[in-house]
Amino acid sequence: MPAFAQDDDHLSAGDFQRIATLIGDHVGIRLPPAKRLMVEGRLRKRIRMLNLASLHAYGDYLFRQDGLEGELPFLINAVTTNKTDFFREAEHFELMQKLLVPDLLARRAKERNPLLKVWSAASSTGAEAYTIAMVLADMVAQQHNFGFSVLGTDISTDVLEQGRRAVYPAEMVTPVPQGMQSRYLMFARRPGIRPEVRIVPELRRLVQFQRLNLMSKNYAIDRDVDMIFLRNVLIYFDKPDQSAVISRLIEHLRPGGYLLLGHSESMVGTSIAMRQVAPAVFQKV
């Protein structure tokens, strides 16, 4: 395969625009021209896997050699942003423990051991979903009056697979409180050069993952969800898509259920027909 210097290897303007339009239409994420170098950098690994010579050859493969249908999932995996952390925007988890879950349980006081359903709607590698599970598991251990299940969904098959494996770099779990680390994380007895940890099986059993495209017109998700986390994703969508996604999500909340957005998306919430109870936290009435 001929060697190409990266400085000389670029997508054509037309191929980048086709990719940007494709991702926008399928996933809702907008890729302005300023993102071109980022997209090219992420695609180079995929190009090597396909044994293609250059980004130009990748454009030929996608759009002029009928490779798009089989390649689309890999293209989505390559260009979607999957930033996530354990206990990211920790105020939401404190609020969940002190206000949201007690309110949800009070509304279902007549039920014996109600099951709370929580949906991490852009779960990435699963750090958010497992953070939710840790907080709820601690509450169950103290109160013994409810059960819970957590669903993580994402468009990227790569990050969903990591969520199912539940294996993370050890440095990534630093924000997890020490007590929770001892209860919910397994550390290797002989850590390697890059130590890893795994979520304990008792917690993994309570967290499921499935692929879902937020741009789909219908979501194959239960319609009695108690809490939905959709944080730091809508900032990548334009306003019409933001409104459409939020409207669809609300349909899956039970009355009194909560929608949590990212703090950077607080202005998105100004148009939501729900009661705001805290910054970026809304309740279906």
Results as ranks from 00 to 15, higher is better:
24 G>E: 13
26 H>A: 13
30 R>S: 12
31 L>E: 05
31 L>V: 10
32 P>E: 14
32 P>C: 06
36 R>V: 07
37 L>F: 10
37 L>S: 12
38 M>H: 13
39 V>F: 06
42 R>N: 00
42 R>D: 02
46 R>V: 02
46 R>P: 10
49 M>V: 15
49 M>S: 15
49 M>G: 13
50 L>D: 08
52 L>T: 01
53 A>H: 04
55 L>A: 00
57 A>L: 05
60 D>S: 12
61 Y>L: 11
63 F>M: 05
63 F>E: 03
64 R>P: 02
65 Q>W: 00
66 D>M: 08
67 G>W: 01
67 G>T: 07
68 L>D: 01
69 E>C: 08
69 E>G: 06
69 E>M: 06
70 G>M: 07
70 G>E: 03
70 G>W: 05
71 E>P: 02
71 E>D: 02
71 E>H: 06
71 E>L: 02
72 L>P: 04
72 L>K: 08
72 L>C: 00
74 F>T: 05
74 F>R: 11
74 F>Y: 13
78 A>L: 01
78 A>C: 13
79 V>G: 11
79 V>R: 13
80 T>E: 12
80 T>W: 10
82 N>Y: 10
83 K>M: 14
84 T>M: 08
85 D>E: 15
85 D>L: 15
87 F>I: 06
88 R>Y: 07
89 E>M: 12
90 A>C: 07
90 A>T: 10
92 H>M: 09
92 H>T: 00
94 E>V: 10
95 L>W: 14
96 M>G: 02
98 K>F: 01
98 K>H: 07
101 V>Y: 10
102 P>W: 03
103 D>M: 05
105 L>F: 07
107 R>K: 15
110 K>W: 12
111 E>F: 08
112 R>P: 00
113 N>V: 15
114 P>G: 11
114 P>W: 12
114 P>Q: 13
114 P>E: 12
115 L>Y: 10
117 K>I: 09
118 V>R: 04
118 V>F: 09
120 S>M: 06
120 S>Y: 10
120 S>N: 02
121 A>Q: 06
122 A>M: 09
124 S>F: 06
125 T>L: 06
127 A>R: 14
128 E>G: 00
129 A>Q: 04
131 T>W: 09
131 T>Q: 06
131 T>D: 03
133 A>E: 05
133 A>P: 07
134 M>A: 06
135 V>E: 10
135 V>G: 09
135 V>K: 03
136 L>Q: 00
136 L>A: 08
